[in-house]
Design a protein around this nucleic acid. Structure first.
Lengths: 345, 345
DNA sequence: CCCGCATCTGACAACGTTGTCCAGGCCCTA
DNA sequence: TAGGGCCTGGACAACGTTGTCAGATGCGGG
């Protein structure tokens, strides 16, 4: 009959509200709100009574209502390709740290490299009214985000640029990194160098391919079509692609691997091959230094990517109006042995 | 002056509401709601007008308001130790997949193994009114969750049991796995076996230590204190601990490493040592098969842990009232060479 | 003793959505 | 043509919080 009894009829458990706390403490609703939010203007005695009621009832403020009222959610969304990919672990951790420093929570989802799923996720996050978005784009058309950005959702793209809209983007220098990596192989005496990478519709993959071509062209080496394998990342097909490059009339003496997953598989293949084949991979891989030979890589700093993007995001949120910018982080060639093997022929 | 003009005065951008859509389409508020939610009872013609207005205004439903009204958020929280740890990548991905299958979003945070931070995160998630929680506990006292669970927040602990409350938990058989791993070394002829693990206040670490002791005791081997190093995980100290075990009057001939991070560092140390020392690690590590020798591990299935926990969570949410249960998943010994090295003395 | 001021407190509306319920219009039948 | 049932649409309250504003209380000074 009384209020407490009525509450227990609620559908989902029976969480106390500020009203309940107020009733129990014998104060007004707004006073409870003041105590909960640490606002001034409450006598110590009143505050104590309210705190006791809060503790007794196990009250916890309902942030949904708060958000509705205040307009800000103190949460940001992170859409990436695959949470399980070791490349994204440090990246999301870095984004989380920055978010935490700004008192925001992180909601994240994996697009699985599917543009539709990316859009679905992003829009779901917008419906939750996240304050901002960090997106590693899977698709190449982000015009669907225009109304959201216009409505004030801060947005930063990472690792790959946004498609068909003008927005902030933070990425690694894929072109320069790949060019340097391939040039390193060329400097070591290699001329027949293979490239295994992802589909060129993925920006980073295309840039790395371009870097490969540029290094070859700079050295005056014509590239044979069958030295390049594009759009393969699953182990099975990478394996086959590598094996094919290593056979035939003019087999490659070195391979440039376009990302961490490709590198891992190529390492496996090369460990089973008699011949000594040089390898440089894009992205660092764990334990790369302990393999024999150590794996030479063009490393990018995933954590730095995430940190930079998140910081940019919160600068947007702090109300600074910034023109969309493209921030490119350098890569670093780490020599460990596999990239320094001389050509075997 | 008119409604549209007023809207643009809003603080945070100017997002259209259902009211705006209704005005533009010339229908009532509730009709817009019906269209947005796919409820029946709207003529095709009306629906078309509403859809047009939605598209023209760039309307997106405000889920905060929806949540406030409906009581469910369709989101679950995941609190783990460190998003960047390769062990948790597949785990969170698995949780995300299950959540997605149930139409829920995933909010996650890292506790950094700090009980206070865990509690802070968990309570922040509860304030957001997540429907459920998957928690990899850092602390050992979770009574602070009692009011939340009573209020209907479904909760499942993973990897380690909850402290001082009765709740679902999904974990790997740390004790059995460690015992088997150590027994494997003993079967290979080792008697002086070292153990390097995390602080025993962490349940998994304690269980693995217990497994180590059990295997030794089963074989009738008394354990020397200086064979065990507890509470060290940072590379520097693991390195020192390993080096100490390998020196002195009765140096160990084999090491059991208590988790993936320890294993990696021990592999590094052993690669610099002349002597041949056997190694079995808990947790699989990437590329463990490519090292020479390959790294023998007691593998647990992180994805399966996450999947099992999340499915249990949604079963709770589907209204099935279940008694708290402890689900233990088996581990698997993977022989790759390092665990099969004979004792060197 | 009363006034004015400062301090503390509470009533009320609003945030944007959904559930309830009723009104009006249509078609069908008697 | 009147009556009944069905379908569509809309008015209104409620979800739990916060911002606004005004009322109550207490205190010191004239």
């Amino acid at each position: 009959m009384d209020r407490t009894a009525r509450r227990s009829e609620n559908r989902y458990g029976n969480r106390p509200t500020m009203k309940d706390v107020a009733a129990r403490a014998g104060v007004g609703l707004k006073t409870v709100s003041r105590v909960v939010n640490g606002e001034p203007g409450v006598t110590p005695d009143t505050e104590r009574r309210v705190q006791e009621a809060i503790a007794a009832l196990g009250f916890r403020r309902n942030d949904s209502a708060r958000v509705l009222r205040k307009g800000r959610t103190a949460s940001i969304g992170l859409v990436l390709e695959d949470l399980a990919d070791p490349f994204y672990g440090p990246l999301s951790r870095a984004v989380e740290e920055v978010a935490r420093a700004h008192g925001a929570l992180l909601i994240n989802g994996s697009s699985a490299e599917d543009p539709d799923r990316e859009q679905e996720l992003v829009l779901a996050l917008c419906a939750r009214r996240v304050d901002g978005l960090v997106v590693i784009p899977a698709g190449d058309d982000h015009r669907y985000l225009e109304p959201e950005i216009a409505a004030g959702v801060a947005t930063v793209f990472v690792d790959r640029p946004a498609g068909k809209i003008d927005a902030d983007v933070v990425l690694s220098d894929s072109f320069g990194g790949a060019r340097d990596g391939v040039a390193h192989l060329i400097a070591g005496g290699h001329r027949r160098i293979g490239f295994i990478g992802d589909q060129p519709r993925i920006h980073t993959a295309a840039e790395r391919l371009r870097g490969y071509r540029a290094a070859m062209e700079d050295a005056g080496i014509p590239v044979e079509d069958h030295w390049m394998s594009l759009g393969v990342t699953d182990p099975e097909r990478v394996r086959r692609a590598a094996e094919e490059m290593l056979q035939g009339p003019d087999p490659v003496t070195a391979i440039f691997a376009g990302n961490n997953r490709v590198t891992v598989t190529v390492v496996r293949v090369l460990s089973e091959v008699d011949r000594s084949v040089a390898l440089v991979g894009f992205d660092d891989i764990e334990l790369g230094d302990l393999l024999r030979p150590g794996v030479t890589v063009v490393a990018q700093d995933a954590a730095q990517l995430g940190r930079t993007a998140a910081e940019r995001l919160f600068r947007q949120l702090d109300g600074v109006t910034l023109l969309p910018e493209r921030i490119e982080l350098p890569t670093r060639l780490i020599r460990r042995g596999s990239g320094e093997l001389p050509p075997a022929d």
